[in-house]
Write a protein that binds this DNA or RNA. Structure first.
Length: 873
DNA sequence: GCGGTGCCACTTTGG
DNA sequence: TCCAAAGTGGCA
């Protein structure tokens, strides 16, 4: 789906908008789910109060029962329209209470901050029973899963053809069903009716059936997919292996049948009205390459690629739990034959992302968690079935049931997104990001392994040296990492606790033994050489394990690739794991050189973890940083004239340097990097509500001086204070805060009795609005640059990492100038984003740097801009 | 004595 | 009583 189509269908605030055909099909798919399934969604008795937010219009409209039925009729008929029509985007529930607008009785109950949105709870007084049911269900899953793991997997199943046409009336499927286990093992049967009860394995389709399948994909109203793993489990299983082996893709195709087509219609199909019905068909597509190879395999691969291409450009959305993994699997299947550019417009409706937007504090819920939270409690999910202890027949039946449930869950969550005013954000930002992240994960960072191993060995030598020193000064050998042994030496043998000027040293919790923590060691470090040695040992050990060995452990075939988590933060930021590339030390670290190291230049050794990352031959890293992104957003949101002036007038200057020179009363040229970093810390701390004590510690001045600085800063930028107060007041009023794109963070603790909790929630509220908005812009930048490169016939630059405000690309040397101009232009023009009705009062500034290693990037000369007026996105 | 686990404090990053 | 992460070691 194309970006412009998105923009068309996300302009839904007025409830009725003209839609492009592709966008409309997405909406039709969503609503065909609504019309069939809406009754299964929990509805509460009370109606939302209208807050000062146009997006709540839905709930107001929905109070009218007539509207609701009209809407349903509209929805059914809209599915057959093609373009320029109007769709009422009201959600299915007739009366919805928003979680941030609790009813009076709920307020009295002081609902826990972790409670799910109340609109999903059928009756509040049944909540305990529901939770209990869920808990017992979970225990059941765990038991079931444990049993499954013990059983062995079946081996080598023979291939068996079951040829029957989609349109044919053969009864072969009946015969096949009798031998259910084998049928399901091969998943083979092309008959339309059979496909409603079984999976059709694409491998066994004849040419006619193949073309029918492609046609079905083109006509599909909904496509629901899940990856199938080697053991028969799917993405819907709660516990996922770190590197699960994908075997294939199971999908549910829902197509409209109007009675006149070639496909058979049965009474069991869902009736949509006007003679049209929905038909479910289950398809299985193997992606794992079999051992046979040869021409047959090649022919199959070719067709499988065709099916996957068709899915990528599907006119309806593809529903998938963890859609990023699906996209990555597709990219992997394409291998060298496919460019990453093929997935750029893929739209995968991911219920996990939808649920996260609604409740960002709910960390990584599994499919069953979501079903328990958002669907009826009576539904039982069998997600943990594997081939282990269940017949394939049962496993595949569960997969079919779960695909249906996944569809229902997703449709319901989509409706909820609209209720909360999050639909636009979901469609313009979070969904387009899925292929971006999948492509990032498919690319591997080259790491200088030799250098890493050398550094590891160096650090290892230093650790050995420190250990020997420790043994020497202690007068005996002991295990340096054992705190018990260390405690015995420090306090048993050396009796440092008796020599310490501190009256009492901290003790361990339960056993009340003298602690060997860092604070204790620091307190006694002048009494004996041992504590200092231990402190350095621990420091070096930490660097070795975190930045060298930790990274080496993540390496496969000389390179690393982080896993990007789209739903791991409360502010909307991305996070990275294995390794956490966002936390890799930027500044070189100095340690004392081990004595056995040759070369005499200096006694210190510099370790620069980022320098281990190198661009491949003929390529260069290019980093694009948003300059002072949060401060610019703060200027925009507060409208502070002084801050706005600072950004508008000194567009080419560094604002933190300017502030530093003002604060320290020195010329901007004399501001050092450390000064600037300090100012940055102080400014953000002040804005986000740091106390004068913390600021004093940060600045290295007295508490009084810090208080004075705080006052003068907030006095100069008066409107910052107003912004902070307004944000907190709004949070108190509604129970949540929102970023510039409408991303929400519920903060129920803002109404807590405890003053500390309340104050913390208030600081979080202020921080979220700014940090969340910056995160929105950075994600937007990723999408826009990604799309721009994909649209270019020549550019090949790849996004390899995002470090919050910095995008790191790997660019062909020859393309640096062209790409640099494109990146700068694209990122800076995000000042205006039409799709999100965003227009910042301040310009955005992007600084570029490039180099052959990530640790050695040098600023790129600023290319002349095409025009001073940035184009809008 | 060894290894697994959960909590906490502390490091790095980013603003 | 700045905010947000991931990762590590200490401790029980």
């Amino acid at each position: 789906m194309k970006m412009e189509n998105y923009e068309a269908f996300v302009g839904f605030d007025l409830c009725k908008v003209p839609l492009s055909s592709a966008a409309q099909k997405i909406m039709s798919a969503v609503h065909s789910g609504d019309s069939v399934e809406s009754k299964n969604w929990r509805e509460s008795e009370k109606t939302a109060e209208v807050v000062n937010n146009s997006r709540i219009k839905y709930s107001v409209l929905l109070e009218n029962g007539k509207n609701q039925s009209l809407e349903k009729r509209n929805l059914s008929s809209s599915t057959s329209q093609t373009s320029g029509s109007s769709i009422n985007l009201c959600p299915p529930s007739s009366s919805i209470r928003l979680p941030d607008q609790p009813s009076a009785d709920q307020n009295q109950k002081n609902v826990s901050s972790l409670a799910p949105p109340s609109c999903f709870i059928p009756q509040c007084n049944q909540e305990a029973a529901v939770l209990q049911k869920t808990e017992s269900k979970r225990t059941h899953f765990l038991k079931e899963n444990k049993n499954n793991e013990k059983k062995e997997m079946p081996v080598n199943l023979k291939r068996k053809h079951g040829t029957c046409h989609f349109s044919g009336k053969t009864n072969k499927h009946v015969a096949l069903e009798e031998n259910a286990d084998e049928v399901e093992a091969h998943l083979n049967c092309g008959n339309a009716r059979a496909c409603e009860n079984h999976f059709c394995d694409v491998r066994y389709l004849d040419d006619l059936e193949k073309s029918q399948l492609v046609e079905m994909l083109q006509q599909a109203v909904a496509v629901v997919v899940t990856l199938m793993y080697e053991d028969g489990s799917t993405q819907l299983r709660a516990e996922q292996a770190l590197f699960p082996s994908v075997k294939g893709i199971a999908m549910l195709l829902q197509s409209r049948v109007d009675g006149s087509g070639p496909l058979d219609v049965s009474a069991s199909d869902s009736v949509l009205g006007e003679g049209a019905t929905l038909r479910d068909q289950y398809i299985y597509l193997q992606t794992e390459h079999s051992f046979t190879g040869g021409q047959e395999q090649e022919a199959y691969n070719q067709f499988a690629r065709k099916v996957l291409f068709q899915m990528l450009k599907c006119k309806c959305p593809v529903v998938c739990f963890n859609a990023k993994d699906f996209v990555r699997t597709v990219l992997q299947f394409f291998g060298k034959d496919g460019s990453w550019k093929h997935v750029v417009h893929f739209v995968g409706l991911d219920p996990r992302i939808a649920a996260w937007l609604i409740d960002p504090g709910d960390a990584a819920p599994s499919f069953e968690d979501l079903v328990a939270k958002y669907l009826e409690s009576s539904i039982s999910v069998k997600v943990n079935c594997t081939y282990g202890n269940s017949s394939r027949n049962v496993v595949n039946q569960n997969v079919r049931v779960n695909l249906k449930m996944l569809h229902r869950l997703t449709m319901g969550l989509c409706s909820q997104l609209k209720v909360y005013g999050l639909w636009q954000l979901f469609c313009t930002l979070e969904l387009p990001l899925i292929p971006v992240l999948a492509v990032m994960e498919s690319h591997r960072f080259q790491v200088n392994r030799e250098e890493m191993e050398r550094t590891s060995a160096l650090l290892g030598s230093r650790l050995k040296e420190l250990e020997q020193e420790a043994h020497f000064v202690a007068g005996e050998q002991f295990l340096i990492t054992s705190n018990n042994q260390l405690r015995e030496i420090l306090f048993g043998k050396l009796k440092l606790h008796l020599l310490s000027p501190r009256e009492t040293l901290p003790r361990t919790g339960l056993q009340r033994l003298p602690s060997t923590s860092e604070s204790v060691l620091s307190a006694v470090q002048d009494l004996h050489p041992l504590p200092k040695i231990i402190l350095e040992y621990r420091r070096v050990h930490k660097i070795k394990s975190a930045f060298v060995d930790g990274l080496l452990a993540c390496m496969r075939k000389g390179s690393i690739s982080s896993t990007w988590n789209q739903t791991g933060t409360v502010t909307g930021r991305l996070s990275a794991r294995h390794p956490n590339i966002q936390g890799i030390s930027k500044h070189p670290i100095q340690i004392t050189k081990p004595q056995n190291v040759k070369g005499t230049e200096g006694t210190m050794l510099t370790i620069s973890p980022r320098s281990m990352f190198v661009a491949p031959e003929g390529h260069t890293f290019l980093a694009a940083d948003f300059s002072q992104i949060e401060l610019r957003i703060l200027a925009h949101l507060s409208g502070d004239p002084e801050l706005l002036k600072l950004f508008r007038e000194s567009e080419r200057n560094d604002v933190f340097s300017t502030l530093t020179s003002q604060w320290k009363d020195i010329t901007p040229e004399r501001v050092t990097h450390a000064d600037r970093e300090q100012t940055k810390k102080v400014v953000y701390s002040a804005v986000y509500g740091a106390g004068k004590e913390r600021l004093a510690a940060c600045l290295g001045v007295t508490v009084q001086e810090a208080a004075q600085f705080l006052e003068s800063f907030l006095q100069k930028y008066k409107k910052i204070k107003d912004f902070v107060q307004t944000t907190i007041a709004q949070c108190h009023q509604t129970g949540y805060v929102a970023s510039i794109t409408g991303r929400r963070r519920p903060l129920p603790r803002v109404r807590a009795q405890d003053r500390q909790l309340r104050a913390q929630a208030e600081r979080q509220a202020v921080n979220f609005v700014v940090q969340g908005s910056a995160a929105d812009l950075c994600k937007m930048a990723m999408i826009h640059v990604f799309t721009a490169v994909a649209a270019s016939p020549t550019l090949t630059a790849r996004l390899v990492a995002q470090i919050h405000d910095e995008l790191l690309f790997e660019v062909e040397d020859s393309q640096i100038p062209e790409f640099a101009a494109l990146v700068r232009g694209t990122m800076e023009s995000l000042r205006n984003v039409r799709a999100l009705e965003l227009q910042l009062q301040v310009p955005l500034k992007v600084s570029l740097s490039a180099g052959h290693s990530w640790g050695h990037l040098v600023p790129l000369q600023e290319a002349p801009r095409p025009s001073d007026q940035p184009t809008s996105c």
